[in-house]
C-alpha cells in the first residue's frame, strides 16, 4: 500500500512541477516590473502548498488517522457500541491472536496464496503480453478478451466461479464428459484439500489481464532499434527475449512484483463470497479474520490488533522487495 501512495505522491509532484512552471510564467508576465526575489518565491511555495493540500488532507483523513487509531485501538477492549468505557488492556489482544489456531491458519493461507499467485500471475501475464504484443490482426481482440475479467467486479467473478466449482457445476460436468464418466470431480470449494487451490486458480485468472496490460506497456517502451540490432546480430527469438526484452523491463518488473505481492496478501473478496474462510479454516485470510471480528463480532480492538500485525507484515515484505530490487 505504501507503494501506491508513493506513486500518487510522485505523480502529483510531477504534475505540481509542471503546474509550477505555468504559474511561474504567468506571474512573471504580470508582475513584470516587480522586484525579483523572495516575494515571488514565497508566492510560488504558497501555490505549491495549496496544490498539495487536497491530496494531503485526504491521505491524512483516510490513511494516516486510521492507521494511528488502529495502533491505539489494538491495545484496548474497544467495541463498536458499548456502554462499558474503552480501556487499555495491554497486549491481551495479541496474546489471544497468537494463541488462536485460526489466525495461524489465516497466515498460512495468505503465505501459500502469495507464494503461488505472485510468480504464476506475473509469469502468465508476461507470456500473454508477449503474445498479444505481436503485430497480428487479432491482437486487439485477444487483448480485450484477456482483459475482460479485470473489468468485471470481483464479487461477480466470485459468484460465477462459485457456480462453476459446485459439486454438479460446470467444471465437474466437463471433467466427467471428457473422461467419459470415468472420473467425477470433487466438491472443489467444500474440500479442505482443494478449496484454497480453487480460489488461487480463479484469482490468477481474474487478475492476469491487468498485469498483462502493465507488462504490455513495459514492452512497448523497449526501443525498436535494439530488436533490429539483435536481429542483425542473428539472435533467435529466445535470445532476443533474454538479452533485450527482459533487461529493458526492469522497472515494470519491480512494480509488478510489489503490486501483486501486496494485492495477494490482502486477498478478501473471493474468500468472503465463495467460502467464508471454510471449510475448516482452509481458505481464511488475515483480512477476512479482521473483518469478521471487527464487523460481524464487533470487537474493534481485536480487529485492530489483527490489522496492526497485517500492517507490519506488509511493511516487512515491501522492505525486503525494495531491498532486493534496488538499483545496484
Amino acid at each position: 500500500m505504501s507503494t501506491s501512495s508513493m506513486n500518487i505522491a510522485s505523480g502529483s509532484s510531477s504534475v505540481g512541477g509542471s503546474g509550477h512552471a505555468g504559474v511561474n510564467t504567468v506571474r512573471t508576465g504580470k508582475t513584470h516590473t516587480a522586484k525579483h526575489g523572495s516575494g515571488e518565491l514565497r508566492n510560488e511555495s504558497r501555490v505549491g502548498w495549496a496544490m498539495l493540500a487536497p491530496a494531503s488532507l485526504l491521505l491524512l483523513l483516510f490513511v494516516a488517522i486510521p492507521v494511528v487509531l488502529s495502533f491505539v485501538l489494538a491495545f484496548t477492549n474497544s467495541r463498536s457500541v458499548s456502554p462499558v468505557p474503552m480501556r487499555f488492556i495491554g497486549v491481551d489482544n495479541f496474546t489471544r491472536m497468537f494463541s488462536d489456531p485460526t489466525f495461524w491458519a489465516a497466515l498460512r493461507n495468505v503465505t501459500i496464496f502469495t507464494v503461488a499467485v505472485v510468480p504464476l500471475q506475473a509469469g502468465l501475464g508476461l507470456l500473454l503480453a508477449v503474445l498479444v504484443n505481436k503485430k497480428v490482426r487479432s491482437s486487439v481482440f485477444f487483448r480485450t478478451v484477456y482483459f475482460l475479467p479485470v473489468v468485471t467486479s470481483m464479487v461477480v467473478v466470485s459468484l460465477l466461479w462459485l457456480f462453476i466449482y459446485q459439486n454438479d457445476g460446470m467444471l465437474n460436468v466437463v471433467i466427467e464428459k471428457i473422461t467419459f464418466g470415468h472420473f467425477h470431480g470433487v466438491d472443489w470449494l467444500n474440500n479442505p484439500k482443494t478449496a484454497l487451490g480453487a480460489i488461487i486458480f480463479m484469482s490468477i485468472w481474474q487478475a492476469v489481464g491487468n498485469h498483462m496490460l502493465i507488462w504490455l506497456s513495459g514492452l512497448q517502451t523497449v526501443p525498436e532499434e535494439l530488436y533490429e540490432a539483435s536481429e542483425l546480430d542473428g539472435c533467435s527469438p529466445w535470445e532476443q527475449f533474454k538479452n533485450v526484452t527482459w533487461p529493458c523491463l526492469i522497472n515494470t518488473r519491480n512494480m509488478i512484483l510489489i503490486t501483486i505481492t501486496i494485492a495477494a496478501t490482502s486477498v478478501f473478496t473471493q474468500v468472503n463470497v465463495m467460502t467464508s474462510g471454510g471449510p475448516r479454516d482452509s481458505t481464511t485470510t488475515v483480512v477476512y479474520e479482521a473483518i469478521r471480528s471487527g464487523f460481524q463480532q464487533q470487537e474493534t480492538g481485536y480487529a485492530s490488533a489483527i490489522t496492526l500485525v497485517y500492517f507490519i507484515i506488509i511493511m516487512v515484505i515491501t522492505g525486503i522487495l525494495r531491498y532486493l530490487t534496488r538499483e545496484k
Binding site: 500500500m1 483523513l61 483516510f62 486510521p66 463498536s80 473483518i291 474493534t300 500492517f311
Partner: peptide
C-alpha cells in the same frame, strides 16, 4: 488497508 480505512471511516463517522 481496506480494514484500516473502514475502521477509520467508522470512527470519523
Amino acid at each position: 488497508m481496506l480494514v484500516r480505512a473502514a475502521t477509520g471511516l467508522v470512527i470519523l463517522g
